[in-house]
Design a protein around this nucleic acid. Sequence first.
DNA 1: CGCGCTCAGTTGATCGATAAAACGAAGCTG
DNA 2: CAGCTTCGTTTTATCGATCAACTGAGCGCG
Lengths: 346, 346
Amino acid sequence: MPARPAVPRSGPATIADVAAAAGVSKQTVSNVMNYPAKVREETRERVRRAVAELGFQPNRMARALRSSTAGMIACRIEPVSSHSLAHLHDRFLHALAEAGQAVGRHLMLFAVDDAEDEAATCVQLVRTGSVEGVVLYNLVPGDPRPPALREAGVPFVCFGRFSDDAEATGWVDVDNAAGVGAVVDHLAECGHRRIGFLGFPEGHRVGDDRAAGWVTAMDRHGLLAGSHRLDVRGEDTWVSGARTARGLLDRADPPTALVAASDTLAAGALQAVRDLGLALGEDVALVGYDDTPSAEVLDLSSVRQPLPEVGRRIVEALCPAGGTPVPVASLLAPELVVRGSSRRRT
Amino acid sequence: MPARPAVPRSGPATIADVAAAAGVSKQTVSNVMNYPAKVREETRERVRRAVAELGFQPNRMARALRSSTAGMIACRIEPVSSHSLAHLHDRFLHALAEAGQAVGRHLMLFAVDDAEDEAATCVQLVRTGSVEGVVLYNLVPGDPRPPALREAGVPFVCFGRFSDDAEATGWVDVDNAAGVGAVVDHLAECGHRRIGFLGFPEGHRVGDDRAAGWVTAMDRHGLLAGSHRLDVRGEDTWVSGARTARGLLDRADPPTALVAASDTLAAGALQAVRDLGLALGEDVALVGYDDTPSAEVLDLSSVRQPLPEVGRRIVEALCPAGGTPVPVASLLAPELVVRGSSRRRT
DNA sequence: CGCGCTCAGTTGATCGATAAAACGAAGCTG
DNA sequence: CAGCTTCGTTTTATCGATCAACTGAGCGCG
């Protein structure tokens, strides 16, 4: 059966080309690729050679159509944002992409002009079979997206808790309170008693959680009573960090250590420390958050979020090994990276 | 012909469902969606109602299979990098995603551990029909990817020139030399004669182009002769910027203006200026590059790269309206954003 | 009347892969 | 030796949409 002409057709080889070259049926080739055990050793080898010779790779769209699984998950890419995730944005996407690939999924990005449209876009992506599920992040209190997607039956997982309901599922988060708490523990262990906190403006989950972490930990160490107004809030900018830190350090009873809610704020605080002629790590300890590249450059202790693990959990929840999505609610622990800016007091 | 049962099947509606509901054939539905003119007004309306009622959206995979166009382009997402694009990374991806959507394409991200594998991954993505083409960036001199992809027949476009061959195509770039040149022009017009330059380490295209821009522009204004060693190079970090700027400002004949190859360097330089008790914009003018959010916060003049336009050109080249990819070689002009850090001298 | 032409829509084939069922040849059993 | 399994492979049908070819009715014109 001279099924196919000898002339190489245009475009990549298909399963039919391989079948013809190996003298077997398409199905056998498919079996070799997916269930090798089903095929006799000898035939298998013959098919494998043909596959290698033709450089065959199964067409993803055909496979997706047949199995009705796109092998993709979607995530919105936001324009430049001043949210807390700003510095982590690309690291988060990288973690997602990597975690996805580990289980054979690719990451699709989409942009929406109007945030209102995001849910609608997600629904569309799922209904057209473009993706299996979507990832949300930068959620705000009362965010409309989770209910909208749940309503539409769109599988989704959020980076960050989006509800105060303890029963709510569909999220993976890093414990912000615990992160700041670990910093306070570390500083207290280094002998610091007066530990200040530079936070984000009130009203957003992440910032409030980090601030709450300071209060809780200070209280645990019995340091809260003597630390009146050692926690200040301000925009997440270098300038704001410098100003608020200066304010604290200029007090009659200045803190000997500062915890910042971001590396940006910490970098600003670092400036304030230098302006006052104080020695970092000696006179004043300083710890940032997010462990951005600048933290390393500045020899700044910082809190590292386990983004790779976050990515894995999200992907795992969206694309579980066996079948349908599974509700997830995991709170991961961040890790404190100690550098020169916060050493034990001598 | 009771083609379909009245019970709604699981999953989204298909074209067959719509056809049955409207009492026409699948093809007619398809025509209504794609070539409405082919269908009689009345029928069209009937089909449209059925579409709306069932919330039908054509399955992307089926369409992709039939038309053998994935409707996607791929781009590698790098882990945290210290490259010059670091600050622009997510803005670039956003621009790509947005430009793609404007012409019905989505952006797929992929991660590769070993940079060597990138070309192989791209080839695989195209051969499996997953994407129509790929976007490369952060290219280094003699980068192996363009030739490898060209060899494999993979459509690609680079952000950044990758070859000194003037004939080479397949890239979109922003004119770095012109950007720095514009800054020098601006500063010269403001009355500055001694204009310093803070650059990246030698050996990379972007940094070298920006440095060359300084030389050319200074020469054009006849300012090069008196500016011996006013251009210095260093790592693209805040610390390095502060140090090198300090070095220049401490000289016996210090510059009255500084051009930095990045906002990061400029932020460091800003510190050096403050340390010396000089007034920014008065005693010393300062201009950064890339117009990152911090530039705005610091009231720092900066050079803005037209990323949206870059994205459009790249997508346009990869997915031309009519048929096959078209060679592209476009050099875009960046835009100088003047802020308080560089005003006219009084 | 009959031939050609347009219009509106249908039918059948196809994209590339895979699930399910059918098939033929051994091998075993009673 | 009929009847039942098992194994290895081929056939057939299917995923959902689109392309190409076809049908049938209505109209105009010589």
